[in-house]
Design a protein around this nucleic acid. Structure first.
Lengths: 210, 210
DNA sequence: GTCTATATTTCGATAGAC
DNA sequence: GTCTATCGAAATATAGAC
């Protein structure tokens, strides 16, 4: 009936099932928080019996850890556009575009991350102290170089990064509030463009490159 | 031994006790989320037996509702500086200062609000649709008037408001991440000034008033 | 008004048939 | 690999002595 040997096809099927569960879990964790989420809710969302989840993920925390880790990976990749740029106008502009697009496409993931950090990062503290810390130092150095070369106004690079994170992620984390203030409707294609352009306009002019 | 009559002094004592419980609850809700918070944790934080909480607040949700409502009140008062100003440089500058100060003084409250909105505002949806919606419309109109009078660059007022909320609240909601990236230490007095000035510098230059 | 003890429910996790 | 049934722990809420 079934085998435990990890032939490529079997392994891929398992990965596919895991991905299906992870997707359901991401949504439930985002909507209810870690404490408010229940394995029953996640099972219902995935259309599986509760015990099946425990077959693929031993504990609720294991499942949660995977969700948070996956989000973090997406975040890191968004930074690639930052480094390839010749200057702040292109680099920071492209970074805003990329982060806004992630907020639009992965609002659940952004909320899970926000919730995790707000509660003191009990699960991903090591990521903050190592990977994120190193990434931030690198970007701070790059921005400082742009400032030293006279390519942008002298703004504290660290606080500028916080502004970029805050403004772009706001559209994911607070999308319910934004929708409510938009007559209860999600932002249209046109409104998303307007949002991106507004953020870029203020920030880029704010650092003296537009 | 005790009376149930609501003499002013008795009533004030009850209010004082309620305030003590609310303060403990705010901290626990912020650190654990609504689902993760337990009445036992709140009771321990307040130094009271668990059953005592149920005497003052019938259910966990009642207690939570009060915490969120109190935070919302603080937010609304922060906007007073906005309206009294003659123009955007003073109005928006003072608003940033006020919101940053709230993030510093009431980080727990900001997190409870953020968590509530992120989870779809199950408790305060009516506030969003009425009070916050009206407040936002008023401020959008004011900013638009400043633009029409040539006092600032033509920026979408609604998205500018979102940027102000996002950047200022970020210092409360993500203070754990900011501390971790600050060698594990809270921002010093000097660093808070630097944060405020950085945000104001980028935003005010970004809307063409500095 | 306060607190101990407990009733009731719900959740995470597992056992075991298929 | 999948699912039903259930165990044991923990949480909300209440009963009732003081």
């Amino acid at each position: 009936m079934s085998v435990t040997a990890l032939s490529p096809r079997r392994s891929s099927q398992r990965a596919q099932k895991e991905q299906h569960i992870l997707s359901a879990a991401e949504k439930v964790f985002a909507e209810a928080g870690f404490g408010g989420a229940t394995m029953q809710l996640i099972a219902d969302m995935a259309g599986l019996p509760k015990a099946n989840l425990h077959y693929y993920f031993a504990t609720k925390e294991d499942l949660y850890r995977r969700v948070v880790r996956d989000i973090f990976e997406i975040w890191l990749h968004a930074a690639d556009v930052f480094d390839a740029a010749p200057g702040p106008a292109e680099g920071i502009g492209a970074y805003i575009d990329a982060k806004m697009e992630i907020s639009r496409r992965h609002p659940h993931g952004s909320k899970v991350w926000a919730s995790e950090v707000m509660h003191g990062a009990p699960v991903i503290q090591d990521y903050l102290e190592t990977t994120l810390n190193d990434w931030t130092d690198g970007r701070v150095a790059l921005i400082q170089r742009w400032i030293d070369e006279g390519k942008m106004a002298p703004v504290n690079p660290r606080h500028l990064l916080y502004m970029l994170w805050a403004t772009t992620q706001h559209y994911a984390d607070f999308n319910h509030q934004i929708e409510t203030l938009n007559h209860g409707k999600p932002l249209s294609e046109r409104q998303w463009r307007e949002a991106k352009n507004s953020v870029k306009a203020v920030i880029l002019r704010g650092i003296g490159v537009a």
